[in-house]
């Protein structure tokens, strides 16, 4: 890609790109500030905790709560970023050319529409990757400094869909899908609505599929009563069950109640006699394996969406 190609790509979608650039910069800066503030608040909390040996009083520190809330907003922004980027940058690529009647010139100047598509899409792909990755890194820091968790070293599956490597790959899938929909319905707003619907359906499907896959490989994880909840390293939990202490056999809650009926718990105990509650899920240290698996699936979907876009554009009347 030459500098000229970049300049033209920018000029053709200047308004959208400027908006996204500004929004991404704001989000990243906000994330960094939240991460920094949360770290400071947490450091002072930890000092208080160590001094007292209890979190009574320290836990009431309002800044922990504030940074946790702000972090939630930042993560929501990060979660939405790939979808917004993909849809708003992808839909107009073909739809606007046809709606603005410029496709006639563009598609005859270029000998092949695939070449035209590559010239148009490549800069957008790079922009989408860079912005989504930047937002993903910002969000990663917010998660790692979550004041109510110990995720500094390994957040595991915490905030799985709003941070890290999945954001850029999601942005690419949505971008290519939106281009294909924009080519099929060459009016921008209807195409945007349809693309949004298709995107939701696709990602709900992927999430359900991934959850089913993970569930099939889930295993019992013992509760680890840390200060900030039962799990320290961010496992992905799908269910809770009972493990029979004597046999080590895991039984689902439903099966347990079916077999034993409602069991009165002894005073001060959380588990029925002879059983220990365990979580069923994937341990946090397997995050990268699953992130890569999901990335591979999304990569295949991106290739399919890109192929679909190219096919539709090849056959499209301008």
């Amino acid at each position: 890609m030459t500098l000229r190609a970049w300049r033209l790509a920018f000029k053709m979608q200047r308004l959208e790109l400027l908006l996204f650039l500004s929004a991404a910069i704001l989000l990243v800066v906000a994330s960094l500030l939240i991460a920094w503030g949360a770290s400071e608040a947490r450091a002072s909390f930890d000092a208080c905790y160590q001094e007292q040996g209890t979190d009574i009083g320290c836990a009431a520190s309002p800044s922990l709560n504030d940074f946790s809330t702000l972090g939630g907003f930042a993560r929501l922004g990060a979660f939405l970023t790939p979808f917004a980027l993909g849809l708003f940058l992808g839909v107009p690529v073909v739809a606007r050319e046809i709606e603005g009647r410029t496709a006639g010139i563009a598609w005859t100047l270029s000998r092949s529409r695939s070449r035209w598509l590559i010239q148009r899409v490549l800069p957008l792909v790079v922009v989408a990757i860079v912005l989504a990755a930047a937002v993903g890194i910002g969000s990663e820091l917010v998660t790692r400094t979550n004041p109510y968790a110990d995720y500094a070293a390994n957040p595991g599956f915490a905030d799985y869909t709003s941070r890290g490597v999945l954001l850029p790959i999601r942005a690419i899938v949505v971008l290519l899908l939106a281009i294909a929909v924009g080519a099929m319905v060459p009016r921008q707003l209807p195409a945007l609505l349809l693309a949004a619907g298709v995107t939701v359906a696709l990602f709900v499907g992927v999430t359900i599929g991934m959850d089913a896959w993970m569930t099939s490989e889930a295993r019992p994880i013992p509760f680890d009563e840390s200060r900030f909840g039962p799990f320290g390293d961010g496992p992905r939990i799908f269910d809770v069950a009972y493990r029979e202490d004597a046999t080590g056999k895991v039984i689902s809650m439903n099966d347990f109640y079916n077999q034993h009926g409602d069991v009165a718990l002894p005073d001060g105990e959380q588990d029925p006699p002879g059983f220990t509650q365990v979580a069923i899920g994937i341990p946090g240290d397997q995050y990268w394996i699953w992130a890569m698996r999901e990335s591979a699936i999304l990569g295949v979907l991106a290739v399919a969406a890109g192929g679909l876009a190219a096919l539709v554009i090849r056959r499209r009347r301008p």
């Binding site: 308004l15 959208e16 908006l19 996204f20 929004a23 917004a84 708003f88 839909v91 707003l189 945007l192």
Partner: peptide
């Protein structure tokens, strides 16, 4: 104000 659908939608969302 903007006179273009998609950028206007984006700005309107913000």
């Amino acid at each position: 104000w903007l006179g273009r659908v998609l950028p206007a939608l984006l700005v309107a969302i913000f």
